[in-house]
Design a protein around this nucleic acid. Structure first.
Lengths: 198, 198, 198, 198
DNA sequence: TATGAATGAGCCTTCATTCAT
DNA sequence: GATGAATGAAGGCTCATTCAT
């Protein structure tokens, strides 16, 4: 096999892999984990059942890959937020970004909110999810502290819960929920610190 | 059949019914809807498989009954909150009660938070859940308005999201999550209105 | 227990028994043996499930009783046909009566045609059905012989098959099948013997 | 996948399919539809339960396939009867063929006579059966008319009922029933027209 | 590498039958 | 006698996974 062939193969493999991942995510979102059969995924991805098992050890592994894939994308966004901004602006940024992400990919967030407390998910992804959650909370705490808020860790938890709760309500009824309004109102709560600490 | 016999039967039926309901809830909580088999429920309840179907038409109906049972208990608590209190105290009451309920019955809340976005649940219980949610939001709005908060409906949504988010985080890790601290901090946010509107 | 009480009891028992029998037949006709549950029969008869088993050992026995009950009624009709008639008139009588019975009780005949070849029925009722069949064939043979037909037994079998076939087709589509016309045409075939042998 | 592989697969599929079909028919004949379990069919065919569902959507579909398979074979025979014969010979041919088919494949006919009046069958196969029945009756009518019989449609129905009745009695007791004799006698009835219309 | 036929454990549900009351 | 709660075997069907080709 020439190197070029190997590359072509590699590319094909990657394409198939991503195709499966995307299809699987869409189906998991639509029908849930248990109601989505592996056969369904393979067929929708135009791939033979056997081949799918060539890429993923089993359904659970595929599921985990789907979640981690989305999670890592999202993490990337948050991790890239660092910029030379005031604490208040950073807070704003975190909040705004959170809602922006949800708006861009409500599919995934709906899935995520739906399944994150399922026992299987908790076993499988506990570490990943915990890491992500802690990262966000730490970020919030850090900025709240710089703003001069009392008990910044507790406040960070509350803010995180607020944002998370809003997202949950939004993805439950994306067509009805007045996310814009709520986002604006929430941001306003942290504006009055602007003058003091900028 | 003598009346006494009928009564005895009635009692037995009720006992079996409740037994099943409780066991089912515990198992649904622990393993989720799909991973909990009807057989499992029957065995755990020390009941024959057939008998279960004597009380519930099918698995879905049992599930629905489990949810509605808890939901109605909880609704009862909220609906009974009316008392001659100031708006601020009523708000406090709503928040405090929410956390108290969760503490008392974390089982149900974990289940509820886990499954409320599943397609099946949304179909089955959409109306009930919507009614409950609206009731809470309306209550919050009413009191926030009386306190004199601007945009009380939006604030109500935010507060509701905050409480809901906190509950979600608490039931995810009930042993670790500092619920007391957070509850206190949250209440404090609404205290400063006390002097003005009492 | 006084004799009068015993009689009243006896009467009640008989009433219940017949009720079950009738209800069972109607349901067997409508849904078939396997698709008719014992519970269904008990409920339709306004009788407790347990009581039904007081009257019949099991479902099969009930089914057998249903069939035998109808069969004996029908047999009664045929056995009572004897009258001082000419052979041709007796033949006419047999044919006419057969169709009359079917018209009066298409329920049973539909059931009968449907189930008489089922293995269970064949085991259960072989003797009864054979006796009935032989009785009819013998009757036909006897009269055909008196009319002077050649090979009267064979002719009897053919005539029996014809009548049976017509009945089968009639009960398959009672609303469409032109039974009157066919009955008339069939009778005509045996009319030409009238002058000769009366 | 190479063409050879695809062919091999195709052949294997067909083999399995036919195996199931044959086994299912034999079992349906022997025990009836309801008393024949899918598991039983799979085991008798030396096939896994799951594989059966690879070929047939469900039990009903399998049953339907069984019936249609035999029905189409039989239809083929009748449809192919056309030849340059006199009407009388054609009639003879129809009758003779009917009995020949039954003798060759008593399995199917027993099944067919047993189940054709079951509600499910009537729904499932009404159209097919009606078409077949009408075809036969029309054929008979056509030839009876050419022979010069009065009311040929009515006569056709009677003849059809006779043949059908005989077949029913034959398949009920194939070992005892004197089919040869009866066939001969029946044919003789249509012989006397021979001179006139040939 | 890719296919899809084949497997079999397990799921939900029904139903004839029994038996304590 | 009368009730209906309780049993459990059996049925139809799905689906993750394996493996010969």
């Amino acid at each position: 096999m020439t190197p070029r062939q190997r590359d072509a193969n590699q590319a094909r493999r990657e394409a198939s892999y991503n195709k499966i991942l995307n299809v699987a995510m869409a189906l998991f979102v639509q029908h849930g984990y248990d109601k989505t059969s592996v056969r369904m995924i393979a067929e929708t991805a135009n791939i033979s059942l056997g081949l799918l098992y060539n890429y993923f050890d089993n359904k659970e592994a595929l599921f985990k890959a789907v979640i981690l894939h989305s999670l890592s994308t999202i993490k990337g966004i948050y991790y890239g937020l660092e910029a030379m901004l005031s604490p208040v602006e950073k807070l704003e940024n975190l909040i705004t970004t959170s809602f922006k992400i949800v708006r861009q990919d409500p599919h995934f967030w709906r899935l995520f909110h739906r399944i994150r407390m399922q026992p299987m998910v908790m076993e499988l992804l506990e570490a990943e999810i915990a890491e992500f959650r802690d990262f966000i909370i730490n970020k919030l705490e850090e900025n709240l502290q710089q703003i001069g808020v009392d008990a910044p860790r507790t406040e960070a938890r509350i803010l995180f819960a607020t944002v998370d709760g809003i997202i949950g309500h939004y993805v439950y009824q994306p067509d009805i929920y007045p996310l814009d309004e709520i986002q604006a109102a929430l941001l306003k709560k942290y504006q009055y610190h602007k003058g003091e600490h900028q």
